[in-house]
């Protein structure tokens, strides 16, 4: 089975724990050990320090490296702080960036159409998937609002814990553009349940490397009580299809 990780962070983080991977070489060693072929990667500086500078660092860190699929972090274009939507799309095309990650809580902006409408229209038009972690959303209601405000954008929401099913299952039922990153979705038999109720197409394999566990994420899928076809979709098929549909 081929694994492609939809959530990996490169670059030096401010805070690390003892024996936690930091360098690209350490991340690659873990990917090799866990048989992860490639990873969608954004840069730590783009999350923690400066979005534009971090996106440029990503280009340097992944230059000539086919193991990483480039992902930029985006901000709303508010009065010149960040690239305009047109500049963003041009930069993505020129630099083979195929997806966007957002940190609305950490970076302090609204997801409402008055702030992000034009940006999300472009994501929909160019079929660019948008990634974020669940803790970047204020609540399940904020998630539902985002998914229904932008029904043509594919969202991948990751780091969903085992305590969220009561909140998220009704949203999955109503919002086909909602996909769950599997990395921390460790409900007992949860992957099987998701496949039964919503289909394997709604799950995207991710790890959260280097702060998340690649070993745990891979094992969760390998040991899941689902078909090989479903495993393949989750491990790489759904993400590859989504990224292949991007039009830049």
């Amino acid at each position: 089975m081929r694994f492609i990780d939809a959530r990996c962070q490169l670059g030096r983080r401010c805070v690390i724990r003892e024996n936690e991977p930091v360098t690209k070489a350490e991340i690659l060693e873990l990917m090799d050990r866990c048989r992860i072929e490639r990873a969608v990667a954004y840069h730590a500086i783009a999350k923690e320090g400066d979005v534009k500078a971090g996106n440029m660092e990503l280009l340097k860190d992944t230059e000539g490296d086919s193991r990483f699929l480039r992902q930029w972090v985006a901000l709303p274009h508010t009065f010149g702080e960040f690239m305009s939507v047109e500049e963003l799309l041009k930069g993505m095309k020129e630099n083979s960036v195929s997806s966007i990650r957002m940190f609305p809580k950490t970076h302090g902006y609204s997801l409402k159409p008055y702030a992000l409408g034009k940006f999300m229209d472009a994501m929909a038009e160019h079929k660019i998937p948008v990634f974020m972690t669940y803790n970047e959303l204020a609540s399940e209601d904020a998630l539902y609002a985002m998914l229904t405000d932008y029904p043509k954008v594919n969202f991948i929401i990751s780091d969903v814990s085992y305590r969220e099913e009561r909140k998220l299952f009704p949203i999955l039922e109503h919002c086909p553009n909602f996909h769950i990153g599997t990395g921390n979705y460790v409900v007992h038999g949860g992957v099987k349940t998701m496949c039964e109720y919503f289909g394997a197409e709604r799950m995207i394999f991710d790890t959260g490397l280097p702060t998340g566990s690649a070993a745990a994420a891979v094992s969760l899928i390998c040991f899941a009580e689902i078909s090989e076809e479903e495993k393949t979709l989750i491990a790489s098929g759904n993400l590859e299809r989504m990224l292949s549909e991007v039009e830049l």
């Binding site: 085992y162 460790v186 007992h188 566990s213 690649a214 745990a216 891979v218 969760l220 040991f223």
Partner: peptide
């Protein structure tokens, strides 16, 4: 912590460790 959550991912953390 099974059944509060899965156990297979923790099994994997051991099996795929160094």
């Amino acid at each position: 912590d099974l059944t509060a959550f899965e156990c297979s991912h923790i099994l994997g953390r051991v099996l795929l460790s160094r």
